[in-house]
Nucleic acid binder design. Structure first.
Length: 364
RNA sequence: GGGGAGGUUCCCGAGCGGCCAAAGGGGGCAGACUGUAAAUCUGCUGUCUACGACUUCGAUGGUUCGAAUCCAUCUCUCCCCA
């Protein structure tokens, strides 16, 4: 079972440690996303070398292809993809929201994005799949309302998430896998508080904060985190789902978040953008054509230690695979270094200074 | 030497009298990307003293109210036969 220790606190921010059956995870932590049991372009070893100790994978995608039974047959996700760290599986709740299928109290009907075939997810079905996948942490099947959802819609999604969480908990039995509940409530403070009560009353191992970073202004997201802070148990990990820009990570930690995941670093890497202490660099742009410096001369990643901006830009422009591999490795390492720096600052009780210094340099 | 097909905006390539500053690709230049249907998507890409004007479709000359589109000559490229 999962163990969570809070090692140090500074206001709402906390420095902690999650221990799962597969690894020790120092928090606050950033978790790279490997939807289809792979962090796109990088080998598990390369991902490990960026400092990552826990990855995300997606129930919806792996159920469709190659199928959870096959992964179970392979000995579970860790074995199937040769990843020695921990894994968290997202439930497919986000797809329910983004693929806009028909949702009833019973579950969600949707059509496969691969072949158009019809499928039906219930909380029980999702638990079966997640247990078969065998990640260290499984997420409840929830309903995620979009950032512009009105009160009524957010309210309904919140209550459905509560009902489904109950059914998930009843259906979930696993030797080492841990189930996290998910708080919803849109951008409405009272709903967030109510959702936090509904979900934490069920006593999960940890809590996802869902339905944020889905199109609402950042300020709303920060506001919701502040509203939630006093209503979530301090002794359990909090996971802000889908958040991953450097500024949001720092802001999230300040508001008490322990875990983050996001496709942003890997996606923008594939689209030619890299993180830098002063902001993002669109490496495929013309000014880098003859810029022979590393992406970030303070970075210790494989890309920065060996290659220039000009070379990587050339690879990106030429459509060479190595280009997006290098930018992916850099962006992951950048975020892992950022999180490591945050953890040190929390240990040293210097997070306020860190926060100030970070935003002095980093242009959003 | 004979016969045939062609030369279009950075490149390839449509257009074949007006609706053409000229389709569509590519390339180039930017922008977006936050629980991944994403190595994706979107915009711009002749010049300017810009809701209008000017210069472009091998060159020159012509026909026409009007030509990238028709005619003549020149020039270059490719293919076939000698």
């Amino acid at each position: 079972m999962l163990k969570f220790e809070v090692l140090n606190k500074r206001g709402s921010a906390r420095r902690g440690r999650v221990t799962t059956a597969h690894s020790v995870i120092e928090t606050p932590v950033f978790m790279p996303v490997g939807t289809q049991a792979t962090v796109k372009t990088a080998t598990p070893e390369e991902v490990w070398d960026t400092g990552s100790r826990i990855l995300l994978a997606n129930t919806y995608h792996l159920y469709l292809r190659p199928g959870h039974e096959l992964i179970k047959k392979a000995g579970g996700l860790h074995s199937f993809m040769n990843w020695g760290g921990s894994i968290l599986t997202d439930s497919g709740g986000f797809q329910v929201f983004s693929l806009a299928p028909k949702v009833t109290d019973e579950g969600a009907h949707f059509k496969s994005h691969i072949d158009g075939s019809s499928h039906f997810f219930t909380p029980e079905k999702v638990m079966d799949i997640e247990m078969a996948l065998g990640a260290d942490i499984a997420m409840c099947f929830d309903e995620c309302s979009p950032g512009d959802a009105d009160y009524h819609r957010a309210y309904n999604a919140m209550n459905r998430t509560r009902d489904w969480a109950k059914r998930c908990k009843d259906a979930h039995h696993h030797e080492y896998q841990n189930l996290f509940g998910i708080v919803q409530g849109g951008v409405f403070g009272d709903l967030r508080v109510e959702s936090a009560k509904q979900i934490t009353d069920m006593d999960f191992v940890g809590y996802g904060i869902g339905g944020l970073s889905v199109g609402e202004p950042k300020e709303k997201m920060y506001e919701m985190l502040e509203v939630l802070d006093p209503h979530m148990p301090r002794e359990k990990p909090r996971y802000l789902m889908g958040v991953g820009s450097p500024d949001c990570l720092v802001e999230g930690v300040m508001r008490g978040v322990d875990m983050f995941d996001c496709v942003l670093p890997t996606r923008i890497a594939r689209n030619g953008t890299v993180f830098h202490p002063e902001g993002k660099l669109v490496l495929r742009n013309a000014p880098y054509a003859d810029d022979f410096r590393p992406i970030d001369d303070t970075c210790d990643c494989y890309a920065c230690k060996n290659y220039s901006r000009a070379y990587i830009r050339h690879l990106l422009k030429a459509g060479e695979i190595l280009g997006i591999r290098l930018t992916t490795i850099h962006n992951l390492r950048f975020l892992q270094n950022l999180m490591a720096d945050i953890r040190v600052a929390l240990e040293d009780d210097s997070f306020d200074k860190f926060y100030k210094d970070f935003f002095l340099k980093y242009k959003i």
